[in-house]
Design a protein around this nucleic acid. Structure first.
Lengths: 146, 146
DNA sequence: ATTACTGCAAAAGATTTGCACTAGG
DNA sequence: CCTAGTGCAAATCTTTTGCAGTAAT
């Protein structure tokens, strides 16, 4: 199904209301690979939805996280919570200079997750696998300016 | 070397001053497996160091993280940053009910880290491998209270 | 018609900053 | 001595909460 975002399906199946604000936030989450924060989502959508409030962005993100439809990645380098619409087990790479976050897929993440679930004794409900460092671009910038 | 904490060595080698406050914070970090927050460290030490300030705790933690002597684990379930004095590659398990954090050692973490360093193109400087779920104790409490 | 959702304003927390004083080296 | 470090108070920033009005179902 490509005409309807999987996030919207999640909301519908949970019996939550499909308000224009929620639909817009889901649309942005699906069509944006920046792993945005609540504030960034708010700023992206404000021009087209002038009445949108930051509170609603937080509400919707909390609802989607609660449904397991998106992941809370925890705080980035600037201390702000970032979200990820990609929910298959993977790692995220966070650039400590530009604060950009990208997905990094590796079967080792699944292997580790399976092991933790089997051996830790914890009833695992979520995971965050984050690596911090300098992205390609920021490495080049910093090496050209000694 | 067991008479001198490795954290204190780190401070000394970096040329940072060994104030009583910093020594106390290092001592607590080494002898505490709770992965404490700045506030928790402050509360633990306040009785013995009545003049200690939360600002100094934050300063010291920032210095130690900067030296790579401890790790910033990011925000726990309550939104507070927690710290880990164990810096070998490992995962952390966070209980979403009691907010407790424990270390989980697995060779798969090192494997993944090696792969990310070799293949991502990022110059990796740090990592956080976090799993969220219910710890043994909280599972038992929740199953006995339906 | 219901009641979940929205948006505003205010509150709550965690962390950071400015600055005068103190003390480690 | 000298300047890094401390402690206090205030500021900042993100996220949460209370509540009256609005709109999805």
């Amino acid at each position: 199904m490509f005409t309807e975002s999987i996030l919207i399906e999640n909301l519908r199946n949970a019996g939550l209301r499909l308000t224009p604000q929620r639909l817009a936030i889901c649309h942005l989450l699906i069509n944006n690979t920046e792993h945005p924060s609540a504030q960034q989502i708010f700023e992206h959508l404000r021009p087209q939805y002038p009445s949108l409030s930051l509170t609603t962005v937080y509400n919707t993100l909390e609802a989607l996280v609660g449904l397991g439809a998106i992941h809370n990645l925890g705080n980035d380098v600037s201390g702000t919570i970032r979200y990820d619409a990609e929910t298959t087990p993977h790692a995220n790479l966070i650039c400590t200079t530009c604060n950009r976050i990208i997905d990094y897929h590796s079967p080792h993440v699944q292997t580790l997750t399976d092991e933790v679930k089997a051996q830790s004794g914890y009833q695992i409900t979520g995971a965050r696998v984050l690596y911090y460092g300098l992205c390609d671009e920021c490495q080049q910038k910093s090496s050209s300016q000694p």
